[in-house]
């Protein structure tokens, strides 16, 4: 590639040729940074929830046990974790270089994610019908904001998975598709962690 051919790497040690940066590692590092900022969003929402999680913030409206369905939340938890497991399958297939494995894994993970969202929407509709809406009190505002923000992240993850399905199907494993698959793994695991926090801080604490 170099012209002149006279570049010796050590010439006075002043210049470097063919200096390359590892794209995939830069991309994944950048995505970790993005996840850090996303974590701060959830930190802010959790802080808001903790501040507004008092009797007087309910303004006479329902709290805790009245809006939590432990059974459904438990099913949601199962859906999230099996979805993460399926995504683990995507990673294994990626390592083996199996395009079919990756595609299948993505579909399963996305389907389980959709189950999670379906359950959540179902619960919300039930709550709304019972008059338990975010506008009712400060406490309910915080409750819905936290859970819905997580839900929106999950929906975003689903869109991403479907995008990756078509991208990998069309383009195979390029630098770009590979780092995106790796980043999606981080993202999807992160949502599972957040769900665990929501489950313990909102649902479990609400029931106990």
């Amino acid at each position: 590639m170099a012209t002149g051919g006279d570049i010796t790497a050590g010439q006075a040690g002043l210049w470097e040729t063919h200096h390359h940066h590892d794209t995939i590692s830069t991309r994944t590092f950048g995505f970790w940074l993005y996840m850090l900022s996303d974590a701060m969003i959830f930190a802010g929402l959790f802080a808001a929830y903790v501040v507004l999680d008092h009797g007087y913030n309910a303004a006479g409206g329902p709290m805790g046990a009245a809006l939590v369905h432990p059974g459904s939340a438990y099913a949601q938890t199962l859906a999230v974790f099996t979805s993460v497991l399926a995504y683990g399958g995507v990673m294994v297939a990626l390592k083996r270089g199996s395009r079919g494995g990756v595609l299948a894994g993505l579909l399963v993970a996305a389907a389980l994610g959709a189950v999670f969202l379906g359950l959540e929407v179902h619960d919300f509709i039930a709550l709304f019908q019972a008059g338990i809406v975010p506008q009712r009190s400060g406490y309910l505002s915080a409750f819905f904001a936290l859970v819905m923000t997580h839900g929106i992240h999950m929906a975003f993850g689903l869109i991403w998975m479907l995008t990756m399905f078509f991208q990998v199907a069309a383009q195979g494993f390029t630098d770009k598709t590979v780092y995106r698959l790796l980043n999606l793994k981080v993202f999807w695991h992160f949502q599972a962690v957040i769900w665990v926090l929501v489950f313990t801080f909102v649902y479990m604490r609400g029931v106990l």
Binding site: V51, L52, A59, P134, Q135, S137, G138, A145
Partner: peptide, 23 residues
């Protein structure tokens, strides 16, 4: 959160109905 208060009528930072303006 201020936005959802203004657009959806929630009560994060209102004085009444369980909001907390100091938040």
């Amino acid at each position: 959160l201020l936005g959802v208060d203004r657009y959806f009528g929630t009560h994060f930072f209102t004085a009444g109905l369980g909001g907390n303006l100091m938040l």
